[in-house]
Amino acid sequence: MKKYLWPSIKLTLILIVVLGGLYPLFLSAVAKLANGKGDGVKVMHNGRVVGYENIAQNFSDDKYFQPRPSTVNYNAAGSGGSNKSAGNPDYLKTVQERIDTFMVHNPDVKKSEIPVELITASASGLDPHLSPSGALVQVSRIAKARGISPEKLKELIKNNTQGPVLGLFGVSTINVLKLNIALDDMK
């Protein structure tokens, strides 16, 4: 073993410099060319930074599209999910409460129309997206709260929907932050 000790230590030191030092430094330099300069992509509205494109934020007001439930209270200082199992009775109680709350705020929606994503917590707690049905189900509430016609809101959702990759692979998503900014900009 002794024969290999010094070579091991020296090779380790070299590789620490290359892999731990130079490799990420090089990438951070290239990242200056990317959107957001490698600091994460921010979103501006009315002249100020209102958040990060890919980080969900809380919208509790009925006038806004609401994102999925978060177990980290939408604070990206941390991240994580509930890790509750499918049959956990406490968890099922939480889900039932979310359904009840949703029904109170959205009296026009039938229970069978509530998409599951709105009553289950996301994996990161920061899921910035809704599916088209997750947004559409909130239309009648927002239409009432803002006095905008539902058709116009559906149009807005359509324009903010990002389809699958090349139209073929994956799922359709809507960025809730961008959708709400577009909503505020509607006159």
Partner: peptide, 13 residues
Amino acid sequence: IDQAAGAMEGKEV
């Protein structure tokens, strides 16, 4: 409720 999206607890849209 509508489970068309599958088991979404702990998943991302």
